[in-house]
Computed example of a mutant assay.
Amino acid sequence: MYSKILVAIDGSKPSLKALERAIEIGKCWKSEIHAVYAVNPGIYGTTVVDPAIGVSDPGSERIFNMLQEESKKIIEDAKSFTGDQGYYVKYHEKLGDARNVILDTAKDLGVDLIVLGSTGKGMAKRLVLGSVSSSVVFHSPVSTLVVRDLGEKKQKSN
Rank of each mutant, 00 (worst) to 15 (best):
G54W: 05
K79G: 00
G117Y: 08
T82H: 00
I43D: 01
S143K: 12
V142K: 01
K73I: 14
S118V: 13
D57N: 15
V48E: 10
A106F: 00
G86T: 07
I33T: 08
P41S: 06
K90E: 13
G110T: 04
A38T: 03
G117R: 09
T105Y: 06
Y37S: 04
A124I: 15
Y91L: 09
G54I: 08
F138T: 11
F64G: 03
D50L: 04
I102N: 01
S31T: 14
D77C: 01
E70W: 09
R62A: 14
S31F: 04
P141K: 06
V89D: 06
G122C: 10
P141D: 04
N100P: 01
D97V: 00
K90H: 11
G120K: 05
I53P: 03
V48D: 07
D84V: 09
T119M: 12
T144V: 05
E69W: 06
G59H: 12
S71L: 13
D112P: 01
A35Y: 07
D108Y: 07
L145T: 14
I102L: 09
T46Y: 09
I33H: 06
M123N: 13
N100G: 03
I114R: 06
S140C: 14
P41H: 05
T144R: 04
V49E: 07
L127C: 11
N100V: 03
G59I: 12
P51E: 14
L116C: 12
D108L: 05
V128D: 03
V137L: 03
S71M: 13
V101M: 00
G117S: 14
S133F: 09
V137M: 04
L95I: 15
V49Q: 03
Q85Y: 06
V49T: 11
I74W: 11
E69T: 11
E76K: 13
G42E: 10
L103Y: 08
I43P: 00
F138H: 15
V115S: 11
G120C: 06
A124R: 11
L145Y: 09
I74N: 10
Y88C: 09
A38D: 02
P58C: 05
K72V: 13
E76A: 15
V101Y: 00
A106Q: 02
